[in-house]
Design a protein around this nucleic acid. Structure first.
Length: 580
RNA sequence: UGGACCAUGGUGUAAUGGUAACACUACAGGUUUUGGUUCUGUCAUUAUGGGUUCGAGUCCCGUUGGUCCAACCA
């Protein structure tokens, strides 16, 4: 090898956000510091779309040596609840990320209030006493300009007094709001005198009854970023049109703080990426809440839900979720991702991770007629052939076995190479058997029992086993396995894009919510099989264990599971090229 | 009939003016005590029409299609 031949390091390409951050850091913006935040509103459970944002916000902090705080965006006490805070924290930790600290938008309520007062005093904000209908009408439309409120130029002292009144608890919600005085003719709707504060007269689960007027998102987010020292405020594309306002409020708060306008000094920057859309999946929190409330699913962690806790219960590992997120990338294109990509990520990770066990989902009995009655033997099987170091466990073999009903055919076609009369098949990790016959119900033709003889010299691991046999089946010994409940899942939705389909249906039929969802719900999204068998060893594994039912698919131990009544959830099937 | 953003195989992403690359899916085949895994192969006039340039997926103009913005939600 020539000495001039450099070792070319294969470096992962950075996504466009990471590239911008790298440039910002190199340019010394914010003193070369990196701080991000993940800002969920604690009004529901996190879903796979949030996982994409989490992987970004925490991911860049990790990658570039910065810090990411967890900030609860709790400016609307009507919808938020402590219940969700714990769940959010748990989900993020489960995904494997660590925050710098947990903060709350409500931590800044006092400062936001003082800043708002300053805005009034400097003529940048006024109290509007019109109804919401009047205000909406004045706002115009994206194609027509708005007109000024009659209260726009009221005396500063009047606004100041009214603003105090808004927070007194004596003013009825809706009677007045605080608005920023910007430009009612702007082509950016968010500049048409946006609302800063509204009256809610409701205690906040963190600040108690201190406040009766609460700040809006636009008047909270950028300022919270600024006050916290966030340098990069990364969010999804629907906030692009908010960015101008975000920057304006940051300008104002810097002025209020006397921090001047040095662009390189303490200024958070908002960058946006495309949010996650998945086909056959409904993502919005509002609709997910309806599904839980209407009992379509069994709670937020139902394995059919796209929530992080649902996906976890379905049997996805954190690594498989992250692998999926990584495979779809971050761009500014509004993509509709194929769930198959997500399933592929699960298979790739679970192939490496899952413990192999034997399970028979649709059992039919096989009798090994030349195997001594009453005799059993313990056979050693690998926990994971991908990782021999993970060891082995034992499975009982005997004269009477269960195999899958569809692993036997009385009249096979040429593509079928499992068990059929007159043919040899291998029983995995056991013996090679020869099918000698079967007994079927004379009326229905349903096979009731299959008869085989085994070759005692073909035991797995011995030289006699080294024979080419086309089919290999999994099996379980009757009386030496346990009955199990296996929950099989399909997509919840029958259409690729349920969000649009539901919207369309609402428009056409004048119904809302669950009634617009029903036509698109998959009636087969859950099927429960209580007649399955698994090996005893698997039945005793703890909840959330990653399993592969050999030759079938990946399964996970449900939290409902007990050794006496084991319950498994299907994560995703094995790739299946049968009959091709 | 406003503004902002976007368009690369079936899906998603890369190529930062210089040979259109990767993953997944699908299909075909080799290996295999899981019809799994693994390995090999096949699948694109970069939405479209012009322009700039020695050279354009990339830059400019038009067209078409899509997303977002008119909550006292975030």
């Amino acid at each position: 090898m020539s000495t001039t031949e450099a070792v070319v390091e294969k470096k992962e390409p950075l996504n466009f956000i990471e590239q911008k951050i790298k440039e910002d850091l190199a340019a010394g913006l914010n003193g070369g510091r990196l701080q991000t935040r993940f800002p969920p509103e604690p009004n529901g459970y996190l879903h796979i779309g949030h996982a994409k944002a989490i992987a970004m916000d925490f991911g860049v902090a990790r990658k570039f040596g910065g810090v990411c705080n967890l900030r609860m965006d709790d400016t609307n006490p009507q919808k938020e609840d402590m219940e969700y805070v714990r769940a959010i924290e748990r989900d993020i930790e489960w995904l494997g990320f660590k925050w710098g600290k947990v903060v709350y938008a409500s931590d800044y309520f006092q400062e936001l209030w003082d800043f708002a007062v300053w805005c009034i005093k400097t003529g940048r904000a006024y109290v509007d006493e019109q109804t919401s209908e009047q205000i909406a009408a004045q706002k115009g439309t994206p194609t027509t300009p708005g007109v000024n409120s009659p209260y726009r130029d009221r005396p500063i002292e009047e606004s100041l007094a009214l603003f105090q009144e808004m927070n007194s608890g004596n003013m009825e919600p809706g009677k007045a709001i605080l608005r920023a005085k910007i430009d009612m003719t702007s082509s950016n709707m968010h500049f048409r005198d946006p609302i800063m504060y509204r009256v809610l007269n409701m205690p906040h689960w963190r600040t108690g009854s201190t406040w009766n007027a609460y700040p809006m998102y636009d008047f909270t987010h950028g300022q919270s970023d600024y006050l916290e020292g966030v340098t990069h405020s990364i969010c999804t594309l629907e906030f692009v049109s908010h960015r101008e306002l975000y920057d304006l409020f940051v300008d104002w708060i810097k002025e209020w703080k006397g921090e001047g306008d040095n662009l390189n000094d303490n200024r958070p920057r908002q960058y946006e990426f495309n949010k996650l859309n998945l086909n056959y999946t409904l993502m919005s929190k509002r609709n997910l809440l309806i599904l839980t409330k209407e009992g379509v699913v069994n709670g937020w962690d139902d394995p059919r839900m796209p929530t992080i806790c649902g996906i976890r219960r379905r049997g996805y590992s954190p690594e498989s979720i992250l692998r999926f997120i990584d495979s779809i990338g971050y761009t500014t294109f509004d993509a509709l991702n194929d769930v198959k990509l997500m399933e592929a990520a699960a298979r790739a990770d679970l192939n490496d991770r899952a413990t192999r066990v034997s399970a028979v989902l649709d059992p039919v009995k096989v009798v090994i007629t030349n195997y001594p009655e009453g005799q059993t033997e313990e056979l050693e099987v690998m926990n994971n052939p991908e990782h021999p170091e993970e060891g082995t466990h034992f499975i009982t073999f005997g004269r009477e076995l269960w195999i899958e009903r569809d692993d036997f055919k009385t009249e096979p076609d040429k593509k079928f190479f499992r068990m059929c009369p007159g043919k040899e098949t291998r029983l995995k990790s056991a013996y090679i058997v020869d099918c000698t016959g079967y007994k079927a119900n004379p009326e229905t033709g349903v096979v009731e029992e299959i008869y085989c003889t085994y070759d005692p010299d073909s035991k797995a691991g011995t030289p006699g086993a080294n024979r080419k046999v086309k089919g290999t089946l999994h099996w379980l010994a009757c009386g030496h396995c346990v009955q199990a409940e296996v929950r099989n899942y399909e997509c919840l939705w029958t259409c690729e894009n349920p969000r649009d389909a539901i919207k369309q249906y609402e428009k056409e039929h004048g119904v809302r919510g669950i009634d617009a969802m029903r036509p698109f719900l998959n009636p087969n999204s859950l099927s429960v099989n209580t007649a399955a068998f698994v090996e005893q060893w698997a039945a005793e594994l703890p909840a959330f264990s990653y399993l592969q039912f050999q030759r079938i698919g990946y399964y996970n131990v449900d939290p409902d599971s007990t050794p006496q009544h084991p319950v498994f959830n299907s994560t995703v099937g094995l790739k299946d090229s049968k009959g091709k």
